[in-house]
Every structure is written in structure tokens, then in C-alpha cells.
Design a protein around this nucleic acid. Structure first.
Lengths: 97, 97
DNA sequence: TAGATAATTAAGCGAAAGTCTAAATTAATT
DNA sequence: AATTAATTTAGACTTTCGCTTAATTATCTA
């Protein structure tokens, strides 16, 4: 739990997560998005991985990263525990007649 | 944005939020829940207030704190931006016939 | 197998965060 | 007006965080 909140606390790590919404990418392509050294990005990726917010898969010379649903669900359920207190905007639904 | 993620990063502050789900409480009552000095709790309350996750209202000698919907909604919408990638458990609905 | 490429690990440093005690502020009580 | 209670502010200490450069591991290619 702590690891997840720690992970999403950093703005660079949040940007990495947003970037991965577009699909999996290898570490180098992720690093290219940021004006920051590769070791720093590597460290951020490690923290995100520990938090189970991303998954790593080695593909030859490259390591591909993608979002990990499991970690997001844990945060989501923490968040839901406040719904007793106030409702959040619901997704809109449409019913066909 | 940063202030909100920072606020929910700390375990004590998350416990404070959970405690306030049961309803508003004054600073002293909140502090009683924790094995920590009152100044420390006061500092945590301040950070939560800056993040607009709680609101403070002075009531005579006491200061009453309660959850602030506005801050939660901002975090919630950040969270929703990942729904492109994967669906989160939807609230169940029931349709009367 | 030598050399280049992808990525991580290691070491070190300055800034930020969390905690405490002590002092100050504000409000109610007598 | 003095006293007590509730809470915050101030200052100091220790730990954690995020960043950099340098070194290391693993893989690919000529």
C-alpha cells in the first residue's frame, strides 16, 4: 500500500504512467520522453514496478514496460472506501430501447 | 495536484482521512487517535487542508475538521484517465421492473 | 570474439519530509 | 484579570528522496 502511494507521489512517475496509457514501451523510449538521466528513469521504473503499477518483460536486449492493472485496483478500492462520505461522478450509461 | 498526492502519501494522513469518514471531528479528538505529538498531527492536518482534502471550521475554542469533496474529485479524475487502458470494477446497479 | 547498444546498479550529494520539544496564540472559565 | 485548555508556530534533528556520474551486466552484430 505504502509503495503505491509513494510511487504516484512523484510527478515524473505519474507522467510515465500516463505515457504508458498509449501502450507498452521499452525503457529507452520512456527515458527519451524526459529531460533526465537514464539511471534516474530506471530508478523510477523500479519503484513503479515494486508498487505493481507497471510490469516489466525482457525482450531480447530491451525491457518492455506496461501498466499493471493489479496495483491500480488496490488504489481504486482505497479510494472507494470514501464513497460512504460522498459520491463521485458516475460513468454515464445508456440504455437501448 | 502535487499537494494532493503528497498528502495521501503519508500513512498517518491517510488514517486521518479514514477517521473523518465517520464524520467531522476537532483536532484534539483526531490527535487522540494517534501515538504522536499534537504538533505533528497539527502539521498533518495543515497539509491535508492545503491539499483541499479536508476543511477546517473554527467552532469557539475548537477547530472542526471534515473531509473536502473537492480535493477527492481531482484525484478521482486523474485516476479515471487510466480507464482507457483498463476498466475498474463498476458500481452495481439494479433496475426495477 | 571485439565492439557497440540497452539498461541497471552503485556511490554520493543536496533538498525535502516527518518528528519532537518548547514557546506562542486564541478562546473559555472562574 | 488570571488561569486553564485547545491548537498552532518555531527551531532542531534524523531519515528519506531524487538526482547525477561512473561502473556493471546483458545482448546484439560485424
Amino acid at each position: 500500500m505504502d509503495a503505491k502511494f509513494k510511487a504516484i507521489n512523484d510527478p515524473t512517475r505519474r507522467e510515465i504512467l500516463q505515457f504508458l496509457v498509449n501502450g507498452p514501451q521499452n525503457a529507452g523510449k520512456i527515458a527519451d520522453q524526459f529531460d533526465m538521466s537514464k539511471p534516474s528513469i530506471s530508478h523510477h521504473l523500479d519503484l513503479l514496478k515494486q508498487a505493481k503499477l507497471i510490469q516489466a518483460e525482457k525482450k531480447g536486449q530491451f525491457i518492455e514496460y506496461k501498466l499493471d492493472k493489479s496495483g491500480f485496483e488496490v488504489i481504486h478500492s482505497w479510494f472507494q472506501s470514501f464513497s460512504k462520505y460522498f459520491e463521485f461522478p458516475k460513468p454515464k450509461i445508456r440504455i437501448e430501447i
